[in-house]
Design a protein around this nucleic acid. Structure first.
Lengths: 249, 249
DNA sequence: TCTTATTGTGTCATTTTGACGCAATAAAGG
DNA sequence: CCTTTATTGCGTCAAAATGACACAATAAGA
């Protein structure tokens, strides 16, 4: 979205991505700071006329993070007529975020498709702001800045969906480095759930899923006993994703 | 959608409802038969410019079934550029389903929001066809007629989502009559899952959820031992919906 | 009254879960 | 160099949930 040729885009339709990473035992989202404003936004974009909506989300993700082949999933369409602040677009114009030429386009009603992406924090080297923003940064989910429109709600919804999915889907691939320790995986779960888990029962349950492979090596350098390094068994991980993990019938 | 004033609608956006009912131990969907064609479609509609997308789905449901206050849930946005048959709209014109005046509107790219609704079969008294269809009927999920565009895929996706949700959400309210027997509830589960369940273990598990109330009465008139009639404890049912049933953490 | 299919209720072995104990580290401090 | 300390690997045990199945109590029809 560098040069904005509005004719290219499908009117009234946008995508917003909740890009989540895990760093220092915190869940973080990649956010954009609007130019000249104390407002932040989710990375988003418009959908080209000859572009699948899913593809548009992939493109947004690619443009901000430089990453391809990321776990990306549509989770909700936000279709309310009033998605927040009535004076929003006027504010953008006033602050010079958009010019008069874009005013009409932005003023129209938009519905937006929410996607969430799980990415490995360290692989995102230089997050790129877009045309309307001055920076692109990781922000901890606890303690978010002021978000524009209904973006806080979108983020909240993504978090909810993810939390629910923890109960019947594996998570961690694409969010943790290729090799990780059991305590690291547990920390991810605890952060997402917002509560502590018993270390020993957690390990038993995770191993029971059969999606982990214990490498022969340990993570050394830590202050205490060196934990084993694990990898995901991608074949079985994928099957877990497709079929579900705690299927009671 | 009786008089079609296209100015009223948000361009490029539609909703489609997978309206499911349960009758004679079969899962059925309410479908529309297109005028003069051997093609069927999901009940759908356009979104008014000042109407929430969710509200549009409610309206469609209301217009076809006459019912309000139904369990209705958005499950996916179908946003591919090519959602099926390229010659579809030309076919509609040729068969007289739409006039020339509507050709342009229909020819544009649409993304559609999929909703599924669970309704009590017997409460839908006279399903109403819309402007483009000649009848509105219940069709068994196994053995569907030929559906237009990607509607078969939409229906399939709804079924998938529902099946998955059986594992962590209660179901039956709005789909079964107010009072029902355990074998009836089990038949619903078996139909959705497409497999047989042990009668006794099923009952134990359902009762364990604590969302059922056993009324003092039995269903009489059957050929054999009269089963107890149950009702849902709506308070607890709703809590089950919100919090999930098989939450492992 | 007897037959037959269906429902209510319960048993039992197995598996899974929740709540802990204890020994083996690995760095840091004295 | 030996002790301290926090962390990890591995295991135990009772309680709860699950899967497989037995048996008695119907209710209509032969």
């Amino acid at each position: 979205m560098l040069a904005l040729n509005l004719d290219k885009y499908q009117p009234g339709l946008s995508v917003d991505c909740v890009i989540l990473g895990f760093h220092q035992n915190e869940l973080k989202a990649l956010l954009l700071k609007m130019k000249n404003m104390d407002k932040w936004s989710l990375p988003g974009g418009f959908v080209e006329k000859d572009e699948d909506v899913d593809k548009a989300a992939v493109r947004v993700l690619q443009e901000r993070t430089g990453l391809k082949n990321i776990f990306l999933r549509q989770f909700h369409l936000f279709g309310e007529v009033d998605r927040g602040d009535r004076g929003h677009v006027d504010g953008l114009l006033q602050k010079g975020v958009i010019g008069k030429d874009l005013y009409g386009w932005f003023k129209q009603r938009f519905v937006t498709v929410g996607y969430y992406a799980l990415v490995e924090y360290s692989q995102v080297e230089a997050p790129q702001p877009d045309y309307f923003s001055e920076s692109c940064e990781w922000c901890a989910i606890n303690g978010l800045p002021d978000l524009m429109l209904d973006h806080a709600g979108i983020l909240e919804k993504a978090h909810e969906v993810l939390k629910r999915q923890l109960n019947y889907q594996p998570i961690g691939l694409n969010l943790l480095p290729k090799r990780f320790t059991m305590p690291e995986l547990q920390a991810l779960y605890e952060t997402l759930l917002g509560k502590a888990l018993d270390r020993r029962n957690f390990q038993r349950k995770m191993l029971g899923y059969g999606i982990l492979i214990r490498t022969g090596e340990r993570r050394t350098g830590g202050a205490h006993k060196s934990p084993w390094l694990y990898e995901f068994d991608e074949e079985k991980y994928r099957r877990g994703l497709a079929e579900g993990l705690n299927v009671s019938w």
